[in-house]
């Protein structure tokens, strides 16, 4: 009964949203003059922001527009987003901390996986480095590079070559925090002399963005691996369940 109701509600929402979107661009002829005037205005606005990005690209310190938006025009989003990643790690650690400690089960890798890891990991580190470097002028950047780095970490973990990361020691914590800390220090540092937060001087923008991206790559890789490694391992035998 409720199931059908929920299905109908979701279907209704989908229908109305789809209908509203379908009506958006091509209905100029059907509506009144006012509506078509508005339509024109909306179209002009849509052209607006990409044009604005293109016009300021040469002051951003990078040549790839997505990287410019991500690390300069809307860098504040990205700063807080790294905060979200860190919070996921902190949340995981808090959960594992609250739980009773459990024995560690070392994982043994087969010969094939070991050989694969031997080949793949250095390659993945290289790819990550390339993606990071490429991000300044073409698709790629810290996130993709960090994800590839994390992939290498996951492989290492699966082959049993990565030591248990929990609880994280000082240097691991430093690595997790590096990207956020560098970003924050630069964000606050450029305010000296009455500038706004994150207002990089135009000449140094490229260098600062590169510094941020490099440290972000390392931190994102470590954070993503920690999220993978931080999971509780399955218990060997079912203990007494409690509610």
């Amino acid at each position: 009964m409720t199931r059908t109701l929920i299905a109908l509600l979701c279907l209704g929402l989908a229908g109305m949203l789809g209908w509203a979107l379908w009506q958006l661009p091509g209905d100029v002829g059907l509506k009144s003059d006012l509506q078509s005037e508005l339509q024109g205005q909306v179209q002009a606005d849509i052209v607006g922001l990409p044009a604005l990005v293109a016009a300021h690209l040469d002051q951003s310190g990078v040549r790839h527009p997505v990287t410019a938006v991500l690390l300069n025009f809307r860098a504040y989003d990205t700063l807080l987003e790294i905060g979200v990643l860190l919070l996921a790690v902190l949340g995981v650690l808090a959960v594992r901390h609250a739980a009773a400690p459990e024995p560690v089960h070392p994982q043994r890798a087969g010969a094939v996986l070991a050989a694969l890891v031997h080949l793949a990991v250095p390659l993945m580190v290289l790819v990550a480095g390339y993606l990071l470097w490429a991000g300044a002028h073409q698709p790629g950047g810290a996130f993709q590079a960090g994800a590839v780095l994390a992939g290498a970490g996951v492989l290492l973990r699966l082959s049993g070559r990565l030591p248990a990361l929990l609880p994280p020691g000082f240097w691991l914590r430093a690595g997790l925090l590096l990207g956020f800390a560098v970003f924050l220090v630069i964000a606050l540092g450029v305010t000296r002399g009455g500038h706004e937060l994150l207002a990089y001087p135009v000449q140094q923008a490229g260098g600062l963005i590169l510094a941020i991206e490099a440290s972000l790559t390392l931190s994102i890789g470590l954070i993503l691996v920690s999220l993978f490694v931080g999971a509780p391992s399955p218990p060997e035998h079912g203990g007494e369940a409690s509610e």
Binding site: P139, Q144, A147
Partner: peptide, 24 residues
């Protein structure tokens, strides 16, 4: 950019996390 990120993070890492969880 999104294609790269989606393949690496959306499919790759999220997939690995989910598979690990199912195994658990």
């Amino acid at each position: 950019d999104l294609a790269l990120a989606e393949a690496a993070i959306g499919a790759g890492l999220t997939g690995a996390l989910l598979l690990d969880a199912v195994g658990h």
